[in-house]
Amino acid sequence: MKILVVDDSRSVRRIMGGMLSKMGHEIFEAEHGKEALEQLKAHPDIGLLMLDWNMPVMNGMELLEAMKKGRDEGPRPTIVMCTTENEMSKIVHAMTKGANEYIMKPFTKEILEEKLGILGIHGEDNGA
């Protein structure tokens, strides 16, 4: 699956991209929401977004809003928030705005795999 990792931290993009790539996925990166929109336009077959909340230029919630407005442009990818925001109110807010799952940082490989498993997304070696 083509996965876009949207996070302003290069090390988070590298670590998460590394985990996902080992699971057999193809990884794209964006530093903020605006760049993510450009990537989505260039690669409409991206199936999953791993999305940080707090980023410069355009944050995660603003990106969710922008994607909602542009939903006529094609099928919407699945969205997993991955953020340090760990309050229940924030989790509820993101899920209401259209996120499909929510990961709180710090996360482990097991957490990442199990959260994607909930959404029916498995690594290629897991017989997806």
């Binding site: 989790i91 509820v92 799952e101 709180m104 957490i111 199990e114 959260k115």
Partner: peptide, 20 residues
Amino acid sequence: SQHDIQRGLPTPYLIRFFKQ
């Protein structure tokens, strides 16, 4: 813990059945 509730628990169930 935060780690425990992230292991395999779907977020809608976290919202419905847990309090922080």
